Simulated scan of single mutants.
Amino acid sequence: MSPASRSPLLLAGLLATAGAAHFAMPAAFDQLVPRSLPGTPRGWTKASGVVELALAAGLVHPATRAEAARASALFFVGVFPAHVKMAWDWRHRSTAAKAVALGRIPLQAPLVLWARSVSRQRRAA
């Protein structure tokens, strides 16, 4: 398996793991939901977990990979405010916790670029 063909599967694994975590540890994600959003934080946590699992499934299948990768890039942009909120909310925590929260913010850019690169890969014949 070439590195290019592993890339979508690695991205799918990342999204599937994150999606499952939304259901395994929902309270950790509830606190990231901006209060300005309608509904409950738990509703947003579950919805984003479902979206991540669906994106992962789409990335696994070559026929839906490009569309799922483009949607993944948009998803990574869409959850950016949650990472900013986390950094703000954690500003009084330990140095290690602050580093984790701040480190998540610039991580979004490579995730968007990774998803975009997957969307541009040619499907295997």
Rank of each mutant, 00 (worst) to 15 (best):
A12R: 01
R120L: 13
R123T: 15
A47M: 10
L111I: 09
E52R: 02
A56S: 05
A69P: 13
R93K: 13
R70N: 11
H83R: 09
A73N: 05
S7Y: 07
V79Q: 03
A71K: 07
G103R: 14
L11N: 00
R104T: 11
G39N: 09
A28S: 14
H83K: 07
A28T: 11
A56T: 00
A97Y: 02
G13D: 10
A82K: 03
S36I: 15
A125L: 14
A24Y: 05
L37I: 12
L107A: 15
A82G: 15
V118W: 02
R70A: 06
V60E: 00
L9M: 09
L32D: 03
V79P: 01
R70W: 07
R104C: 11
F23T: 03
Q121T: 13
R42Y: 10
A125F: 15
A101I: 02
K46E: 06
A97D: 13
W114L: 11
P8K: 10
E52W: 01
S72P: 11
D30T: 08
R65A: 09
S36E: 13
E67V: 14
Q31W: 03
G43H: 02
A97Q: 05
S5I: 14
F80C: 07
A21P: 02
P34K: 07
P106C: 00
H92C: 04
Q121P: 09
A18Y: 01
P3R: 14
R42D: 03
G58C: 06
A73I: 03
H92F: 06
A18D: 06
T40R: 12
